[in-house]
Design a protein around this nucleic acid. Sequence first.
DNA 1: GGCTAAGCGAGACGGTACGTCCCGTCTTAGG
DNA 2: CCTAAGACGGGACGTACCGTCTCGCTTAGCC
Lengths: 208, 208, 208, 208
Amino acid sequence: VTKSLLKAAPGRPRSESTHEAILQAANELLEENGFSGLTVEAIAASAGVAKTTIYRWWPNKGAVAMEAFLAATSPKIAFPETGSAINDVVTQMRTLIGVYNGVTGKIVSELIALGQSDPETLRNFVTGYLEPRRTAAKRILKDGMERGEIRGDVDPDILVDSLYGPIFHRMLSKHAPLTEEFAQGVADYVFRGTVGPKEGGGPASTGV
Amino acid sequence: VTKSLLKAAPGRPRSESTHEAILQAANELLEENGFSGLTVEAIAASAGVAKTTIYRWWPNKGAVAMEAFLAATSPKIAFPETGSAINDVVTQMRTLIGVYNGVTGKIVSELIALGQSDPETLRNFVTGYLEPRRTAAKRILKDGMERGEIRGDVDPDILVDSLYGPIFHRMLSKHAPLTEEFAQGVADYVFRGTVGPKEGGGPASTGV
Amino acid sequence: VTKSLLKAAPGRPRSESTHEAILQAANELLEENGFSGLTVEAIAASAGVAKTTIYRWWPNKGAVAMEAFLAATSPKIAFPETGSAINDVVTQMRTLIGVYNGVTGKIVSELIALGQSDPETLRNFVTGYLEPRRTAAKRILKDGMERGEIRGDVDPDILVDSLYGPIFHRMLSKHAPLTEEFAQGVADYVFRGTVGPKEGGGPASTGV
Amino acid sequence: VTKSLLKAAPGRPRSESTHEAILQAANELLEENGFSGLTVEAIAASAGVAKTTIYRWWPNKGAVAMEAFLAATSPKIAFPETGSAINDVVTQMRTLIGVYNGVTGKIVSELIALGQSDPETLRNFVTGYLEPRRTAAKRILKDGMERGEIRGDVDPDILVDSLYGPIFHRMLSKHAPLTEEFAQGVADYVFRGTVGPKEGGGPASTGV
DNA sequence: GGCTAAGCGAGACGGTACGTCCCGTCTTAGG
DNA sequence: CCTAAGACGGGACGTACCGTCTCGCTTAGCC
C-alpha cells in the first residue's frame, strides 16, 4: 500500500492553520485600511503569528496581500449563459461595475498600483486574477463568433481589452463615474461601431 | 512707475532657481529609479536644497513628483489635423503607444499607482494630464460628429474612454504587449463595430 | 565683542536635555537589570526619546552604557591623604571592595565583559574609568617612593596592578569572596613580601 | 554473554560521535569568531547536527562553549618541579603569559565575559578551569611554605590571587601589555615586598 | 541704514515600519 | 529514546524615510 507518491518532507510541516490565519488577517486589514495601510506587523499581530513566520513564506507584504486577495476572490468568476454572447458579456460588465465600485475595486486598484513598482506582484495579479477572467470572457466571445453573432475575423484578445479596458481605466483614474450606463455605452460602441451619419436612429442598443 | 498692480509680499521672495532645481531633481530621480525609489531626502540632496524648502511648497513627495512630471510633459499634446477625425485619432493613438512604451509610460503608470493611495495626487493627475488630453481628443471627435463621420448620438466621453481605456489597461497590467496593431484593432472595433456573420470581408479597416 | 571663538554649527543644535535623559535612562536600566538586560528600545522608551536619536549619537548600546556609566561615576575618585602612601592605598582598596561588592561592581564587570567583544568599548572603559584611577593611585605610590616609604626601583605600573589586579580578578571570577581581609592580605604581601621562615612573627601588618 | 552489568537504557543510545562533532565545531567557531560570533545555529550547521540535539544536552550556547573549551584545554596543566616553589611558580607564570597572549587568552577572556551574565557558566569556568589551576599552584606554594621558602603565616588563597590576579587583570582590561617582565615584576613584589628606602640595591630578584 | 519678514540650508528630533538575526521550543519522520 | 530537519513564537536589532522642529543666515521692501 503506497502511503504517498511523494516522500514526506523532513522536519516539522508547515502549519496550515497559521497560513490561513495570515491570509485571513491580511484580507481583513486590506478591506479595512486598504493596501497602503497594511503592515506586516499588523498582519502578524492580528493573526497571532510571528513576523518571522510571514517572512519565511512571503518576500514582502505585497506578496501576502496578493495571495490573500486571490485566495478570497478567486472562485467568484461567473458569466451568465443566455445563448447570446453579447448579452452575456454586457450583463457581466454591468455586474463588474458594481463590484469595482466597492471594496474589491479599491483592492484591485491598489494591487495594480503595487504592481507598478514590483513586477513579480503584477505578474501574479495578471496570472492569478486577470487571465482567468479574460479567458472566461474570451470563451464567451469565441462562442459568439462561432454562432455568427460576432464577426469571425475579430481578435478576441483585442476585443476583450476593448470592452474591459475602459472600465479599468475609469476605476483607476476616476476621471468620470463608473456607471452601468458607461459599461453599456462601451459595449454598444465596440459591438455596433460608431461611424455613421450625424443624425440617425443609429443601430439598436446592445442593451440587455 | 508701478512695477506691479499687486503689492509685493514682504520678506525674501521665493527662489525660482531652487524651485526649478527641485523639479528637475525629482524628474531625474523619477526616471532613474521610478517613483517607489523616490524619496524627499534624495530630491533635496540631489537638488542641493533643504528638505524644509520642499515641504514648504509641497505637501508630500507625490505632489512634487506630479508637478515635476507635468512641468516636463505638459506642452507635448499634438493631434494631426487631416480632415478625418478617425484618421487623426488613430494616428495619435499609434503615437501614444510609442510614448507609453518608453519612460513616460513608466512614469504615468507610477503616478496613477501613486494616486491609488493619495486622492489629491490622482485628482492632480487627472486635471493636469488626463483632462487636457481627453478634451483635445473629444474636440477632434466632436468635429467628426459635426461632419457626419461619426454618429451624432455618440457620447464623446464614453467614446474617448473606449478608445484610450484599453491602452491604459495594457500599459498598467502588462498582460499583453502594447503595439500599434493593438491600437489599430481597438479603433477598428470601436468605430466599425464587431457584430456580423462569422465569415465576411467585414467592414474596411479604419487604418491609416 | 567676540561672541564665540567657534563658529556656530549650522542646523538645529543637539538637545542637551535629550542627551541627558538618554544617559540617565540607560543608567537606571543598567542598575536595575544589568547590562545584558539592557536594550536600546527600553532606553528610548524610558527616556521618552526616539530610537533613531540614540543611534544618531552612539553606534551601539555598549557605547551608550559606557558613557552613561562614566557620566555617573567619573567624579567619584578619592584617595585619603594621611601622609603614608601605603596607608592611603590600603584604605582606598578597602573602600573599593565595598563599592565592587555592590551595583557598581556588577556594572564594571559587565562593561569589561562587553569590552571582550568590542575593542572600542574596552578602550573607552580603560581611558574613561581605569586610567584616571590608576593614575591617581600611581601618584600616591610615587609620593611614597619619594618619601622613602616604598623602594625607589619599583615600577609604579606593575605595583598598581599587583595591588588592584587581584581585586578585579575576584570580582570577575567570583571564585572566592571579595572581602576587606583579602584586600589587606594582598597589600601586606605586595608591600612586605612573603619570603621567610615557616614560623615567625613575620613582618607587621600594613593594616590601617 | 552479558554486554554490561548495568541494564542498558532503552531506546537509541546517545551518539558519541555527534557529541564530539559538536564540541569540535564549537571550538573551531570559538577560535575563529570569538564567543560573540558564536551561534548555536552555526555550531549545528558546522557539526552537521540538529539544533535540537544540542539543546538536548546543553542548556545554552555558553555551556557548549565552556565544555568545548574545557575538553580542549583541560589536560594542559604543568608546573615545573625544581625544588624551589618560587622558581616553579614564576616559571609557570611566564609560560602562562605566552598562552594568554594567544588564542587561549582570548577564549578565556570571553568565557569570563560570558560568565558575567550567566552565573552557571561562570561557576563552570571556575570549577572546570580556574580551581584546578589554583589548586595546583597552591600545592606548589604550600610545599614552599613547608620548606621554609615562604613564610608560614601566608594565606595560600590570597597569595595565589596576588600572583595571578594581575595577569588576569591585564589580559581582560588590556590597559598595558602582558609581558614576561610584568609577570616577573609582580612575583618580585609579592615575594620580596616593596617597602624600603628610596635608593637601595633592594632585595635580589626572584627571577629564574 | 536699520527694521521687519519671509526664504532657505542644515540638521536634530519623534516616530513607524521595515526586514534580519538568533533565540529556545515545537512537531514531524526516521533510526 | 535519539536524531535530523525545520517550522514556529518571540525579542531586539539597526536602517530608511517620514514629516516636524529649531537654529542662524540671507535677501528683500519699507520706513
